[in-house]
Design a protein around this nucleic acid. Structure first.
Lengths: 148, 148
DNA sequence: GATATTATATCGCAGTACGATATAATATGA
DNA sequence: TCATATTATATCGTACTGCGATATAATATC
């Protein structure tokens, strides 16, 4: 009854682990670049991702804490803690929701907007550079054992 | 003299932030899957990445602490701490290097090998599912403002 | 054989995210 | 209407991560 997935394609060969490690390294190199870029701007990596999400997903009233949590795939109370640190650093503002007063709507400060603009440009430039390697590593990994 | 990159393509339009946020969400969804899979196997996400690297990069003597750190793009002393927790959990063994006794060579225990095999299979299956979305989001982001 | 370099390790710290729990606002049902 | 359930945000304690600063041991260099 239990579908033992482990026996369909296994065991992995050495080359499969190499391909998987290589793909994860490509991902890691992009994420490392991103983390360094954020830190150089005085942000932690997660603060950068939160600011990007707020900028990309807000409507005119801002973004709710819960919507941010869902976008970042973290628990609501983890988003609260991230926002506490962002507020302490003067990067976001909170406001009680006009329609539903349970909701807290978050908006970016001008300083956050400036930092995000610079970081976003750097990321697009770097992604243009790294994308071929990343997509290549992914193809390499998936082309073996393609389902018929 | 300083090449002011910030003024070549800026300011970003709303749509550019949306595209960047969408690409990061695709990445995040894969990483979330990976983190959950690791935790369900009783590993932390970084422990899983370390084990994959050891499996993928070792020669017959194992992998040195420094090589692991370089692969994961973390500092050597951060790799040491990660390996301490892995050793405490019975997932790796350390041995003094035969050629250079400064080096500590790391190998996987049988239990780590079993966990990695299961996780690796799950990851290939999931990547096959998520790859189109991920590559699509990346193309969407990069196709605007392509350098002539 | 003194000194520099390389490799690993330890300590204190901050950020992250979790589980458990709490509080406030809104929705639902008798 | 009013008790109860649900939703949204927040707080507390804990573990993992990775950094800077620093230490120790082994090897290389002069």
């Amino acid at each position: 009854m239990a579908n033992n997935l482990a026996e369909l394609n296994l065991p992995f060969a050495d080359a499969d682990y190499v391909a998987l490690a290589h793909f994860r390294r490509s991902l890691r190199l992009f994420l490392s670049f991103s983390e360094d870029a954020a830190r150089t701007s005085g942000l932690t990596p997660k603060q950068h991702q939160a600011i990007l999400a707020i900028r990309g997903l807000s409507d005119e009233t801002g973004l709710s804490v819960g919507d941010l949590a869902r976008h970042l795939t973290i628990q609501p109370h983890s988003a609260v803690e991230l926002l506490n640190r962002l507020e302490d650093s003067g990067l976001i503002n909170r406001a009680i929701g006009a329609a539903d007063r349970r909701c807290v709507m978050v908006t970016l400060t001008a300083r956050a907007e400036r930092l995000l603009q610079k970081l976003s440009h750097m990321h697009v430039v770097e992604l243009r550079r790294q994308a071929p390697e990343l997509v290549g590593a992914l193809r390499q990994l998936l082309e073996k054992g393609e389902p018929r």
